Simulated assay, not measured.
Amino acid sequence: MAIFNKSSEVEKPQEIDDSKSAAFVQKLLGVGIGGVGPFDGAKKVANAARQRHPDRDSAIDAVVKQHTKLVAAGGFVTGLGGLVTLPVALPSNVAGFYILATRAVAAVAELRGYDTDKPEVRSAVLLTLIGSEASDVLKVAGSPAGGRVASFATSRLSPSVLMLVNKGVGFRLLTKLATSGILRGSTRVVPFLGGVVGAGVDTVMLRKIVKHAKEKLPVV
């Protein structure tokens, strides 16, 4: 799900209100970190990786590899239908990508000593999804941690600050998604080519997000 690519031709973003932002964030937190049904939560994923790989770095590598395969498969399947299935398939792929990215980062955080049951850690996981914009979100929210994601994750913060941070992350993600629609959709005019490009873009994007998360959430 490419959100940082730019195009000379960009769709006008749809209006994004607080309810849409909150609903998107709740899905990322509830499903991506908590898990639902057969979809394991981040703690379970981290524990499974830890059991197979006692070495922390090896366990993290295993989590990243697992989720890279999952997003690649999701991007490929979504792209195969071309423009015929695009209106239905794209929203599912977008949600699926960010849920997987959230779980991957949360599992890495668990393996590095963070407790994803804590709201501050959950919000910190979300912050890693928006890259360098995290500092701006933290400053606007009035976080005492300044622009540092790691300090935010290990602080004890008020519900109002956490709400502002989550809302800021949701708004920025949805805005990026709204302004990247043409570029994403144009790669799927040719069904098979679209599938290949979609898988490649999703893979690169996940690796970029995880790399950023590893930099911002050191071992505690």
Rank of each mutant, 00 (worst) to 15 (best):
V77H: 02
A72R: 05
V77E: 01
V63C: 00
I99N: 00
V64L: 01
K20C: 11
H53F: 15
D117Q: 13
F24K: 09
R122W: 04
S19M: 11
V108I: 12
G37A: 15
K118T: 10
I33K: 00
A48M: 15
A101R: 05
G96I: 11
V36A: 15
Q26C: 01
V31G: 03
L111Y: 07
G81Q: 00
G32M: 02
V31K: 06
V88T: 01
N47Q: 15
L29I: 15
S19T: 14
I99D: 00
A106I: 12
L80C: 04
S123C: 07
G75R: 04
I60L: 10
F97E: 02
T85W: 01
P91Y: 08
G41Q: 14
P87M: 09
H67C: 04
K65N: 11
A109P: 07
S58P: 06
T78I: 04
L100M: 11
P91C: 10
V63I: 14
A59R: 06
G82M: 08
G96W: 11
T78Y: 00
D55H: 05
T78C: 01
G75I: 03
V45T: 14
V121K: 05
A73Y: 06
A106K: 12
P38N: 12
V64G: 03
A23Q: 14
P38R: 09
A89H: 01
I99R: 00
P119T: 12
K44T: 15
L29R: 07
S58K: 14
R112S: 09
G35I: 01
A22W: 06
A109E: 06
L90H: 05
R112N: 08
A89E: 00
A106G: 11
A48T: 14
G37C: 03
P87V: 08
D40Q: 15
V105W: 08
T68S: 13
L86D: 04
